[in-house]
Structure formats: structure tokens, C-alpha cells
Design a protein around this nucleic acid. Sequence first.
DNA 1: GCCAACGTTGGC
DNA 2: GCCAACGTTGGC
Length: 154
Amino acid sequence: MKYWLLKSEPDAFSIDDLIACKNGTEPWDGIRNYQARNMIRDDMNIGDQAFFYHSSCKIPGIVGKVEITSEPFPDPLAFNPESKYFDPKSDPANPRWFAVNVTFIEKLSDIVSLSQLKQNQKLLTTEFPLLQKGNRLSVLPVTTLQWRIISQMS
DNA sequence: GCCAACGTTGGC
DNA sequence: GCCAACGTTGGC
């Protein structure tokens, strides 16, 4: 079982939005970055867990935990001309973009903010990609150690 | 709103 | 294959 971190802008889709979804489950779709795509398509499995991270907001940080509850599947938005994630170059016979279903596990009683994460010396020794310069990926791998440290912080 | 740090596109 | 121009992300 692997661990991940999934970023979302709370204005677009927050942890509370996920809670409000049927069965607390919703496709994690609209990912249009090849590195992130590769991780979803090649490395994600049912039963993996992920931190839910709020980005581009007042207090960026980790707000909860979710579980991956489907195998990777072609992102249907890529085939929908109505969607802003429509990609005419994605061929249904050879899909370019992938999604997984995520299911709500828990909301942290307090956010573990980015500034708190930056201050955690233990975490800084682990090369946490979220804290590394220039990182913009919306899907990041998290090690078991990092998962444990951050879970303890919450 | 600014801007650094990317990623993508497309002409050559 | 190079690289300039452009677009996006995301913290501040």
C-alpha cells in the first residue's frame, strides 16, 4: 500500500465538497500533467491512502485523509467537449489522461499548515517533495515515514 | 496582484 | 532537437 498527497484548490473542490459527495466518493479527475498522470495510471492502487491538501488559499495545508477506491480509469472529462478539461488529442482507443476514485476517510480536527510542515525538522530531513523548491505537481508520493510524521502532527 | 519556477507549444 | 514565447501553479 502506498501513500500520496493530492492538491486541490478549496474554491474549486474542498474536503467538505468531498464529504458532501455520495458515499464520500468522487473521481479525482482533470489532472493534465504527465508526471501526475503517470503516477495515477501506473502506481496508484485500490487501498492506497492520500493526504488531501488545500492549495492557493488563505492557509494552505493538509486538511484530511482519503482512500483510493478504484483502479485507474481513463478520465472521461478528456472526451467531453463541454468540459474545460476536454482534450481533443486524447483518443478513446488510447486515452491520454487518467483518474481514480477517492473516498473520504477523515477530516483533521486542525489543519496541518504548510508553514507547520516547513518547521518540522524531522520532515525536512526526508526530502518531502511538497517542501522542495519549484514543486508544482498536484499528485505527490508520500513515504511511510512522512505519512507517520504528518499524522502525528495532526 | 506579483512573480518564480516550472511545463507546453510550435517554428525553424 | 533547440529554444523563445506563452501558459499555469501556487505561495506570498
